[in-house]
């Protein structure tokens, strides 16, 4: 009995050790970015490299906040990602609901279509999407950028929410139907409240995808009217010179918020994913 407990203890300690190692590996690049962002330019390329700056400086951050377009880009990204995730949530969950609940002709084809659009490489879409938006005057607008990001977000939300809706027993809805609810009311007032964490998770997923996207933003944004954060990182490099301290400070500024957002809702996020993950 005692020997078994010892064995179990040792096993637990080993597992914890592995987990700690994995977490360290996960945080390695983040640590390096933070460390570099606090170094003065003379320490940035020190060889051999070290983690703790000999002279901690916050001047890189001052540059980022006062002398760059990062604050504006940050606001742009926030608006674009929000707009995109809201649009994706509304359109995608409606479609996902229909896929989960109704039998209709062309269902197989349409789900294949939604799936396929998820698989299109963005480098392929880049130029034709630009032509399209240019002709209707959407280039370099926040709405145009958010709409383009629907390419990634919408199929994703559709697929994920389809799984969630399947997990809701039909009986609940049928009971509501008897009470005279229309299908739409049904969705809005019965099903959606049940799935709040799941839909929130999907929304966050869409938000992060939009926030991080680079290839499309590269051609569809031009000025401070719509430029997003991944592109604003280039502010600190020119033909002659890359200012690494500033670039890394900016990287911290654009990465931390989404990590914080995620950490604050991680419980709902995982619950949400879970409800779609296994068929009930």
């Amino acid at each position: 009995m005692n020997a078994q407990m010892v064995k179990r203890r040792i096993r637990l300690v080993l597992i914890y050790a592995v987990l700690v190692l994995l977490v360290l590996l996960t945080l390695l690049p983040l640590g390096w970015i933070v460390s570099t962002s606090l170094k003065p330019s003379t320490e940035v390329f020190a060889n051999p490299p070290y983690w703790i700056p000999k002279q901690i400086t916050f001047s890189n951050y001052t540059n980022v906040f006062t002398g760059s377009s990062i604050p504006i880009a940050f606001l742009n990204s926030l608006i674009i990602a929000l707009l995109c995730s809201v649009m994706a949530l509304v359109l995608g969950s409606m479609a996902g609901y229909a896929f989960a609940r109704f039998q209709f002709r062309g269902k197989g084809f349409l789900s294949l279509f939604m799936l396929l659009s998820q698989m299109l490489p963005l480098t392929v879409l880049m130029i034709p999407l630009y032509y399209m938006e240019n002709r209707v005057g959407l280039v370099d607008t926040k709405f145009g950028m958010a709409a383009a990001h629907l390419v990634i977000a919408l199929p994703l939300v559709t697929w994920m929410s389809k799984g969630y809706f399947k997990g809701i027993p039909r009986e609940i809805e049928e009971a509501a139907m008897v009470d005279g609810c229309s299908t739409f009311q049904n969705l809005m007032f019965i099903v959606v409240p049940l799935l709040r964490p799941a839909l929130a998770a999907t929304g966050i997923y869409a938000f992060i995808s939009s926030w991080n996207e680079y290839a499309l933003a590269n051609v569809l944004t031009r000025s401070e009217a719509s430029r997003t954060v991944p592109l604003a990182l280039n502010d600190f490099s020119t033909f002659f010179k890359v200012n690494w301290g500033d670039t890394m400070a900016a990287a911290v500024v654009i990465t931390l918020p989404i990590i914080v957002v995620f950490l604050s809702v991680q419980k709902q996020f995982v619950e949400g994913l879970a409800s779609g993950a296994v068929k009930g």
Binding site: L91, M94, A95, A98, F102, L120, L125, L154, T183
Partner: peptide
Amino acid sequence: LTKDEKKAIPFVLPGVLVTALLIVYPLVYI
């Protein structure tokens, strides 16, 4: 249209149309 189809169309169509709008032209183009 079957009863299910009548119900499904208003739900599926907006999402599918938006996706189509975004990818059909690029696909045909390439």
